[in-house]
Nucleic acid binder design. Structure first.
Lengths: 231, 231
DNA sequence: CGTACTATTGACGCAGATCAAGTTCCGTGG
DNA sequence: CCACGGAACTTGATCTGCGTCAATAGTACG
């Protein structure tokens, strides 16, 4: 984690002061429609997605607590994809231009933003690698480990257990599979003793085996240091 | 395009002054190894990729003239993926920290950098959508249109024709396919009268049909405005 | 010319999609 | 408290897009 000055913290606190509740399922950023406000996730999950003419859907990113949503597209242009709440959420909505100006004045905050970008990009590069070259079994193993690491970092995993609010259809649209096949691969992961599922709760039974099955290299999430906004 | 001041231009010129030639095939950024220098492509193509234990390869991004390579990972951490020259290249190599400091002093340059990020991210989101939900035929149609638009923006397309230095294996590793299947889909695109191929040169015979086949929405490349570094 | 890389074509196999029935688990209202 | 309706999940049967394997040809370069 990067050290922030008192002034930095007060900027962040001001940015986060405008809280907003969003109900699960709500599309709160629409592709193609100007929006000069951006969000930070305080509580709950969201996702960015693209719809095709014929109804196919691809989720390109998941947003967990602490993540920025649409800061630079709010600042610069029209967003080209939509964002929706996966669960009931609490977000902080802020004016992107005002925040950008404040950022420029604080070297550390600016660095923090670049970190956040670097991490987002690494996650997306790894997602491309997953969808492009991993089998469905490996893909599911990989996303479970990734979500576990990301949630742990923001204090939302206990031991080897975490809450996965995404439906199998969400996961399918994120991983480039069908919901049916995700179900089958969950069964295999259970049968192989890698994970246990109880309702929305996932327990990783063998982190080592799961990471090996996914060819998971945690480096893309770590980057030596980390920054998280929120709470 | 964004207007830059004379001071901005001189910063860029200084940044671009250190030219370097890189031979095709050279891996010039290695994942996991610290590198505090970043690059701008002046001439030629490059790609970022990830290798798996068993030899599978996924290319996550292509870099064309004018594109930044690894600025923020150079600034902040270890790169987690490698980058290689696809063709013989000329790049400008610069110190990421020095440039970052200069960036902070120039609001317009800073905005330009954010633009570049937004665009990169949009391209990656669209890549995820491609690999996850488009058929192989649609994927190939899509990348051809994307490359055409990107090259045209930097003056490297003439009419409906452009040079595609990537082998079918590069395309396969970018699109999550095999080289053999890329070859088959090229044949179909030719048979359907959408493109003509002559050596390394691609001619788009019907831009409309090609875009329709790919469900191509140019918005993700445009963002109202654009910025390009280099030449 | 021979070696190595790239592209092409065909035959065949399989991972994951599609189609079709259930089943479980809720929240809601009678 | 039970009945109902709708998500979400599960399982099986079948199909197909793309991968794999194999052979050949074109091209570029030493």
């Amino acid at each position: 984690m990067i050290d922030l000055t008192a002034a930095d913290r007060s900027i962040i606190e001001r940015m986060l002061s405008n809280r907003l509740e969003i109900a699960a399922g709500t599309v709160f950023v629409r592709g193609g429609q100007p929006l000069n406000q951006a969000h930070v996730v305080v509580q709950g999950w969201a996702y960015r997605f693209r719809m095709f003419q014929d109804g196919r859907r691809q989720i390109s990113r998941l947003f967990l607590p602490g993540d920025f949503i649409g800061f630079n597209s709010a600042l610069l242009s029209l967003p080209d994809q939509s964002a929706a709440a996966l669960t009931d959420m609490i977000v902080s909505r802020f004016d992107a231009r005002v925040f950008a100006e404040q950022l420029r004045k604080s070297p550390r905050l600016w660095l923090a933003l670049l970190w956040s970008y670097t991490r987002d990009r690494s996650i997306m590069e790894e997602r491309v690698a997953s969808i492009g070259r991993r089998t469905s079994y490996e893909r599911l193993a990989h996303i479970i480990v990734e979500l576990y690491f990301r949630l742990e970092l923001v204090g939302e995993a206990e031991g080897d257990e975490f809450v996965l609010p995404a439906t199998q259809e969400h996961l399918a649209d994120l991983l480039g599979l069908t919901n049916i096949h995700v179900s089958r691969m969950f069964r295999r992961l259970r049968q192989d003793g890698l994970v246990a599922v109880d309702g929305r709760s996932i327990t990783i039974l063998s982190r080592e085996k799961l990471m090996k099955a996914a060819d998971f290299d945690p480096q893309y999430l770590i980057h030596g240091q980390n920054i998280s906004f929120g709470q």
